[in-house]
Design a protein around this nucleic acid. Sequence first.
DNA 1: AGGAAGATCTACT
DNA 2: GTAGATCTTCCTA
Length: 192
Amino acid sequence: MKILQRNFYKRDPLLIASELLGKILVRNMNGSILSGRIIEVEAYLAFVDEAAHSFKGETTRTKSLFGEAGHTYIYSIHMQNCMDIVLSEPGTPNSVLIRAIEPIEGIELMKEFRNKENLKDLTSGPGKLCQALNITKQLDGVDITKKTSPIYIIDDEFSTKEIIKTKRVGISKAKEFDYRFYLKDSPYISRK
DNA sequence: AGGAAGATCTACT
DNA sequence: GTAGATCTTCCTA
């Protein structure tokens, strides 16, 4: 059960995206643990990817994206929050959007935050999982490589069977790239 | 100061 | 399958 270290986040972004599948996202809320297995992600690339928030340069909103690997980038859209993991060297804003997880620990608390009972409605989308894990913009830019962090990712050596690679969801530019990855047949993916 | 767009979610038909 | 809710952020003037 080891926490992914910063070097993990400094390799090829598409490789990192596929390897994040099956890892466990942990949210530590003053000792209350909420966790889930990552089953869907999307990669957003620096400089060449028109769909990336970083494409038009650094702003107050996207500051975290330009920072050091192994930190969060949390932004709001349509009254929701979404979370990216920042990759690569400072100034090179590659990132991975966490789109869906499979709930493991703290399910009752997730139901409260979501105000939903159905297990499949708790974390099956980027806005949903942030609500279920109580991830707010106060957590923008936090380091996720330490055990004392409010958010971190651990590797329990889960073996992913079949990974599907398809086009990204919900964007209007650069639609042609196959930068979305998810675990085949998971009931928790955001869309088919 | 105003307006438009957006990496979404929910509910309804 | 599609429309509507609803708000933060950025661009323009």
